[in-house]
């Protein structure tokens, strides 16, 4: 029954999306991919698959921002969460020689950074930007200080080919030959979307992000909700950190997260604080990077490597410049909530 409803909600969402005016873009993309595939199938598949690979961590990190801002907490500490969880994920997995322990350690340490942010912003009502900066500085400092060279993972999470689905031309290679965290992360993004717009939790969360005293006067504990959501978001960030080290790269270095936490904030805004919107925005970011990489590999354009690496940051600036002032986020994000003034 529940499952049916969830599936129904997703199908409903997709069919309305396909009927909307924006679906024009969707059809253009499908046609473009089909054309590219007919010309050069190998490169097209590679670019599409890399779009997901590069885009997924950004999408997952953007979910952290969405969950927090929807409850009225601005989280610029995502970068710190990614760095911390990648650090713990890597070293716990390397020391125990067990990827599962690494994964759990990453999720737990991400949740701890969320707890720290909640403590600073919700209980102590600290300025949220400063609180996020504290999380970032702490993460950079601690992970650099305790970093040791010479450790390595036993392996990285293997790719799971989904029987049947992975044989579909193009789509099979792009979507159904990925690692476990990729599948899990994608599912969680859809779950978050459904939860945000179709459950009581989502309704309450959004109400708190817009106008907390509306929730408080309806008998909802704003403080409890903020704590729970920010900590869950931190755990989600931890999963993202685990993806980066345990599934994608397989190693850890100082400053490993390389600004992905900040790019994620741009993606959150680009996706208008909507999980599906952010997922699409993240895939677009991933696509830009993947395309540039592929063009370089194919030797079609002679762009120096550093310029390719600049791409996500340049895109972030462009997106923010064009969307600033036009999109409206949760109204109460960034404001500490004082109960006595309710």
């Amino acid at each position: 029954m529940l499952r049916l409803q969830a599936v129904g909600a997703v199908i409903n969402m997709m069919t309305t999306a396909l009927r909307s005016r924006k679906s024009l873009y969707f059809y253009i993309v499908v046609i473009a991919i089909a054309f590219a595939y007919s010309v050069n199938s190998v490169s097209t598949v590679a670019v599409a698959a890399s779009s997901i690979t590069f885009g997924l961590p950004l999408a997952m990190a953007a979910m952290v921002g969405i969950m927090c801002e929807r409850t009225g907490v601005v989280n610029i500490g995502i970068e710190g969460t990614l760095l911390t969880s990648a650090f713990f994920g890597f070293f716990v997995a390397a020391l125990s020689q067990n990827l599962i322990w690494g994964l759990l350690a990453a999720i737990a340490s991400g949740a701890v950074t969320g707890l720290l942010l909640a403590l600073l912003t919700v209980s102590w009502k600290m300025d949220q930007i400063i609180a996020g900066t504290i999380v970032n500085i702490l993460a950079t400092g601690l992970t650099s200080f305790f970093y040791k060279q010479g450790y390595s993972l036993p392996a990285i999470f293997p790719r799971w080919s989904i029987p049947g689905l992975s044989d579909i031309p193009f789509l099979g290679r792009v979507f159904f030959q990925s690692g476990p965290i990729t599948y899990f992360g994608l599912i969680l993004i859809f779950v978050l979307y459904v939860a945000m717009y179709h459950t009581a939790w989502g309704l309450r969360t959004r109400a708190i992000g817009e106008y907390p005293s509306s929730a408080e006067t309806s008998g909802i504990s704003v403080k409890k909700f903020k704590y729970i959501n920010v900590v869950i978001a931190g755990a989600f960030g931890g999963l993202t950190g685990a993806y980066l080290t345990l599934e994608l790269v397989g190693s850890f270095d100082r400053g490993f997260s390389a600004g992905k936490g900040f790019t994620a904030l741009a993606i959150m805004i680009f996706g208008r604080w909507n999980p599906i919107g952010a997922l699409l925005a993240a895939i677009f970011f991933g696509f830009a990077q993947a395309l540039a990489n592929q063009l370089m590999i194919d030797g079609l354009v002679a762009i120096p490597g550093p310029f390719i690496n600049m791409l996500p940051y340049v895109l972030t600036i462009v997106v923010l410049a064009f969307s600033a002032g036009k999109v409206r986020g949760p109204a109460a994000a960034g404001q500490p909530y004082e109960r006595e003034q309710a």
């Binding site: 309704l203 959004r206 109400a207 817009e210 509306s214 929730a215 309806s218 008998g219 909802i220 109204a331």
Partner: peptide, 17 residues
Amino acid sequence: KLVPVMSVTENIILGDE
């Protein structure tokens, strides 16, 4: 104590959905 961007129904059921 109403959320401006939400519907009448959503505001009324908030907290007791």
